[in-house]
Design a protein around this nucleic acid. Sequence first.
DNA 1: CGTAGTTGCTTCGAATCCGAAGCACATTGT
DNA 2: ACAATGTGCTTCGGATTCGAAGCAACTACG
Lengths: 175, 175
Amino acid sequence: MSSPPRSLDETELGAYFALIEASSLLKHAVEEQLREAGDLSYVQFQLLATLGDSPTGSRRMTDLADGVVYSRSGLTYQAQTLEKRGLVERTQSSDDERGITVTVTAEGRAVLADVFPGHVAILDELLFAPLSRSDVEALADILSRARDHMRQNPPRSAKPRRRRKAAAGTGRERT
Amino acid sequence: MSSPPRSLDETELGAYFALIEASSLLKHAVEEQLREAGDLSYVQFQLLATLGDSPTGSRRMTDLADGVVYSRSGLTYQAQTLEKRGLVERTQSSDDERGITVTVTAEGRAVLADVFPGHVAILDELLFAPLSRSDVEALADILSRARDHMRQNPPRSAKPRRRRKAAAGTGRERT
DNA sequence: CGTAGTTGCTTCGAATCCGAAGCACATTGT
DNA sequence: ACAATGTGCTTCGGATTCGAAGCAACTACG
């Protein structure tokens, strides 16, 4: 509310840049592996993996969107793409007439299994190779906290679908 | 070459997911702020910031591409976009007839200055708020090492421009 | 000098992504 | 039951992305 604008020191800048760069590089590498091994985009892999993780192999769209950092529309797009390939199925939720339940198919699991070893290998080579055990532990701990914090504090996005009237008048709008 | 395929333990998975999620969330948040504050995409901001960092305010395209994790074509696109808005200028390198030197304009610097405080604020709120000083230091240290390692080891991308002959016949291409 | 291979950047086509708007079902209050 | 509001997902339009192919300028080497 009142924290004065301050600049970042060198360490903070370093952490920020390293975070962005490292994740970008890793993501690019993984994306390439996924494309070659199973013709999957990163999101598609994330979706399949999330579904495979579930005991029933299925989730609702919204839960998926929560798990992956993705826009709803992007999720719809990828779910449709995966469905066309027969890697997932989409069925109406029995509970909620407008809810869609996405389920990974046998073929989806097969593709997942096909891709996974290479995926792990990339992570080993690129991310974990230069890190010690305690590095990995520290990374997991620190970044988990950061992630949880960010999930709780949607910065100014995730608006309630339409700034509820004028309650959001933070004086931020332009023009 | 011979490391047997192994699975990742819980900590490693945690570190990996936390890295991807945290960076995604942060990037999304920052992107939104940049769009609202200065109508810049993340890459555009990175480019301007990189240029602003340089003493002369200019760099060659290739050096820019190295600094940012980006495809060449994407860089060309964004440089053109920024040029149309008058935030950068592109001139032929005197040295190399085919080299392009990109220079940030006064207006580009203005936009940068306009956007920067909000940018820092977001980082403070979302990334640094839940972290201690030593967390930040550890993060900077660990991720810098990871990043440097990845930069040195292009996984299988960054091919010498055309897989030298048929050396890459892994039998993976589909039809 | 001339030819071959490299390197810097752009163009091209297609895929992917997002936010805003829209539609349909659900829930709540009266 | 009805209206008002909230929620789940999709559609739409446009922006951004990438890899592959292409063009032009450099470099090496005979």
